[in-house]
């Protein structure tokens, strides 16, 4: 059974429909990427999974449980964690407090402290800035904080919305290296990306979305070779 299964999902903003019946699966242990042009509905899909938006129709099954109508906080408690588009760091809170918020649903202080140490080994730069307000970090550091904050929740499935957005190429490499590392530690990842090239390099499988529907799917290596995909998302080459 898949860890996450989306069945025929329809989502609207007011009277404007953004998703027109999409279905896909994420198996435990995989990195699955969801690519598509601006406005295709990728962010909408992730927000609906994590409970920020309510679908008109369709079903979301996570770990065998229907979470379609569940509150966002209950979903987090099940280990389904969403790293939102644009990082959404709590600017007035310190780096430490941001990380603590990531662990909001956890109780054991000792384990939380351990997770924090693990985040600091992954991102030593955050450790140097623990008492600094999150809003004073650079864009790249904020992205590290956003990922670190999500890891504080002990995720089983991580939804990542454009983690490479606005980062210098060297940092993009670094972030993808970390995504791979997180996955190797047993976390399943659903990765939304504009940078299809990098996304295919870490993902096992992928889905291509266009204006609210899924156009193509397949193993990442196959999608990367697909002429249509190359034309639209990999710069023609």
């Amino acid at each position: 059974m898949a860890l996450l299964e989306i069945k025929n999902l329809y989502v609207s903003y007011g009277s404007i429909r953004a998703l027109h019946g999409i279905s896909f699966k994420v198996e435990e242990g995989e990195v699955v990427t969801l690519i598509g042009a601006n406005g295709a509905g990728k962010t909408t899909t992730l927000k609906t999974i994590s409970g920020l938006l309510r679908p008109d129709k369709g079903q979301i099954v996570y770990d065998g449980v229907d979470i379609t109508r569940m509150g966002a906080d209950a979903i987090v408690r099940r280990g389904l964690i969403h790293v939102p588009e644009g990082r959404r760091i709590f600017a007035p809170l310190t780096v430490r407090e941001n990380l603590e918020m990531g662990a909001f649903t956890r109780k054991d202080k000792h384990e939380i402290e351990e997770s924090m140490e693990r985040v600091f080994t992954l991102f030593p730069r955050l450790k140097e800035r623990v008492e600094q307000p999150g809003g004073t970090l650079s864009g790249g550091e904020q992205q590290m904080l956003a990922v670190g904050r999500a890891l504080m929740a002990k995720p089983r499935l991580l939804l990542m919305d454009e983690p490479s957005m606005g980062l210098a190429p060297i940092l993009v490499e670094e972030i993808f290296e970390i995504i791979r590392e997180i996955n190797e530690q047993g976390v399943t990842i659903l990765l939304v990306e504009q940078n299809a090239h990098m996304a295919f390099s870490v993902a096992h499988r992928g889905y291509v979305m266009e204006t609210g529907v899924i156009q193509l799917e397949g193993p990442a290596s196959e999608l990367a070779e697909n002429p249509q995909v190359r034309e639209a998302y990999l710069g023609g080459g």
């Binding site: 966002a72 809170l93 603590e100 918020m101 649903t105 929740a153």
Partner: peptide
């Protein structure tokens, strides 16, 4: 306190606070 930090987080960005599991 955890509640107070959650208050400041929610005051700054409610959807992001919900993604932390904050009610």
């Amino acid at each position: 306190t955890k509640l107070g930090k959650a208050m400041r987080a929610a005051a700054y960005d409610k959807p992001a606070a919900r993604l932390m599991g904050i009610n």
